[in-house]
Amino acid sequence: MKGPDVTWYLGVAAFMFATGALGVLLRRSPLIVLLSLELMLNGANLALIAFSRLHGGGAGQIFALSVMAVAASEVVVGLGLIVAMARRNLTLDVDKLTWLRG
């Protein structure tokens, strides 16, 4: 394998996951929370593909493709919810959406 070790790819994956987690915890706009969630999923995907290369098996790539499908589904439902909230004139702030709390 030419170029950097798998370790370097895993470092980038860890950084992307941590950045996405920071965005999910820190930001209050649900749109940016969804974007940060995509960042976390892609960090996990990079780790899966790096390990797939390390072990020489295709299962990691299959897993990564399944994660992509789940991410696309999650975006459809998440954006549908955000548009429904905006149509009911709710504030788009995840800290203020508390009216489902018992």
Partner: peptide, 12 residues
Amino acid sequence: AVGAAVAILVEV
């Protein structure tokens, strides 16, 4: 939030 993100990164 920052502490949790940094903890994940440092652990990995």
